[in-house]
Design a protein around this nucleic acid. Structure first.
Lengths: 212, 212
DNA sequence: TCAATCATTGCACAGGATGCAAACTTGCAT
DNA sequence: ATGCAAGTTTGCATCCTGTGCAATGATTGA
């Protein structure tokens, strides 16, 4: 858990600046809305020059959206890949995802503000989805390795393997999006991880009912 | 099929202008890339003023991306909703989607150019997916009606009904995205509709294999 | 033909975004 | 500690995006 190998001052300052900008943009955007908010306003609030803002984020939106979820550490990934054919695939993916979003959870206030802004400005949500593509590709590659492990026959056909891994990944992401929607729309204070388990369970029941 | 109730001259010109801009942006972007392309360039090529460009599209990207797929006409939708519990749900959704993208298919050259640009600029692809949200909501609402028809018991619980309809929709969209990816990445000249049938078939086989 | 309606255009302007070079801060080897 | 290399912040200049407004011109329907 402790990935803090004594960051240098420079690195710590960088992170602080980044977070200062993010906090500033969330605070101001929540108060008066995105459109009546200029880079200059944000920079003033964050105590940096407008030019510095662009050193950290390519646009106003990018600062609001927040960082894309990351894959968990290598140990978890390795465990998933080598879990063997006996372990349920979707369960494994779900846990990887939960780990991923859990590490990304920062401040409760910020999370709430971001959620509100996502509701208010659909294009932000959209861009966030766009940023997921990287995550998506990483995940697909991992799933591919797992499939190759579980089913050596399938591993012979690279095309089929890749196609299947991608489809499985996309279905898993469908569940993730489902969880996200309910979590973002709902008023309940249920955490995203819990909602994710619910959504994956519903996906499971869907698959069952689909088979006569 | 013939939804052309004698468009007036004004309407025809509007459509022509829109298409002229789209053609211009695709041509120029394919030649020299998106970033070295200004609104002024595009407008010159399309023989309209820069101001007019913005009357049609909110941004450069919007012009490249193309229009979001539409739901098919009401007859098809009605047929889907009332197909009854005997008809396979995913098959029905797939056919609705195929109809939707088929009407959106314009010119072969444009389609190809757009495909290339989507490969080259992932954020375009992403934005396109984002634009699907409207389509997504429309589809979810239709699926919800179908579910309510098929399963009156489920229809009692509005929450559960909506949640399930949304999940099913998202899974179907996962298949659509899968088809889209393969179609965009692949060199094959196979059409998107065919690829969609392949992807939905693979989804089907996935569900089967998931059930021991 | 005339008036209403809608589309196109030019103009002005605020804000977004980037390259560049100067000033400053941090890291590190001596 | 000192000094140099590397990285960060900033101001400045500049181009592009995007929008409101008002004038002009084309299309429509009576």
């Amino acid at each position: 858990m402790s990935d803090a190998p004594a960051l240098g001052l420079r690195e710590r300052k960088r992170i602080a600046t980044r977070r200062a900008i993010q906090r500033a943009v969330l605070r101001l955007a929540s108060e008066r809305g995105l459109e009546q908010l200029t880079i200059e306003d944000i920079s003033r609030e964050a105590d940096v020059s407008p030019r510095t803002f662009f050193n950290y984020f390519g646009s106003k939106d990018a600062a609001v959206i927040g960082d894309a979820p990351d894959l968990p550490n290598d140990a978890s990934v390795e465990r998933f890949i080598t879990a063997g054919p006996g372990a349920d695939l979707m369960d494994g993916i779900r846990e990887l995802m939960v780990e991923g979003v859990e590490t990304a959870l920062e401040d409760r206030v910020e999370t709430r503000q971001r959620r509100e802004l996502h509701k208010q400005y659909p294009h932000l949500f959209a861009q966030r989805m766009a940023n997921m593509r990287q995550f998506e590709n990483a995940l697909a590659s991992i799933v591919e390795q797992r499939l190759a492990q579980d089913d050596p026959a399938l591993a012979q056909d690279a095309e089929a393997l890749a196609s299947r891994a991608r489809l499985i990944t996309l279905v898993a992401i469908a569940a993730l999006r489902h969880a996200w929607s309910l979590w973002a729309d709902g008023e309940s204070s249920e955490g995203l991880p819990e909602q994710m388990r619910d959504s994956f369970a519903e996906l499971e029941s869907l698959l069952v009912s689909a088979r006569p």
